[in-house]
Write a protein that binds this DNA or RNA. Structure first.
Lengths: 119, 119
DNA sequence: CAGTATCCATTAAGATACTG
DNA sequence: CAGTATCTTAATGGATACTG
């Protein structure tokens, strides 16, 4: 995430799984603790850095920055900087991540069912 | 996964996110590099340890064991031991993980679209 | 066959302080 | 406001050898 050794076995392993399989590719893109959560928060409307932060109370600034950068690099969010003082930066979903909405809704429903079943 | 300190900030953080949110709960259950991949392999039919291993060429025995244990603990696969020599153990999907199939198919399709869009 | 055990490498996550 | 920088700990992943 931060600095990744390109040639660790781990990286190579990951790369080759991801390349050979669309599912892994998707998970790689959106997996982890924070990414989908960030996207969910952006579903209704575009948000500014601190708005996202407040919406996800337990994330640190550092983590939020890192995750936003990766999401941006993967084309899942867009970042718009307004040349104002104080600075304003807005994040919003892109077309491709919008397509993900129905999928995470289903996953969410599944999670609820599953949780209930084990309670 | 292996030995987790129960009271690290990280664990606490994770626990509380997972508890408050069905989506995170679902991701926690099925996220990571290997879990969905294992489930996918079990979709068509039940498999033995080494069959899964061969199907996922790059996983190590240790990782496979760990992931299978977690999946079992979460009720996503069932494990049947046959009292034979040599030992035979079969893994198969449970009802709740079967419900996941249409979801991962969609995710897979999304991954393919996304990948294409950026190629 | 179906795993365990051990030890080490890599990566993710967090606290805190600071800046344009 | 919207981040960086730095340092530290925790968690995950892997190689290899071994066992009931």
């Amino acid at each position: 995430m931060a600095e990744r050794k390109e040639n660790s076995t781990n990286s190579v392993n990951r790369k080759c799984i991801v390349e050979s399989n669309d599912l892994s590719y998707a998970i790689d893109m959106v997996g982890g603790r924070w990414k989908l959560l960030i996207l969910v928060n952006l579903e209704k409307k575009k948000l500014r850095f601190n708005e996202i932060r407040k919406a996800m109370s337990s994330i640190t600034e550092r983590m939020l920055t890192l995750q936003l950068r990766e999401l941006e690099a993967d084309g899942l969010i867009s970042r718009t900087v307004y040349a104002e003082v104080p600075p304003r930066v807005e994040y919003e979903l892109t077309e491709i991540s919008t397509e993900l909405i129905p999928i995470w809704k289903k996953l969410c429903a599944w999670g609820a069912r599953h949780r209930k079943a084990r309670a």
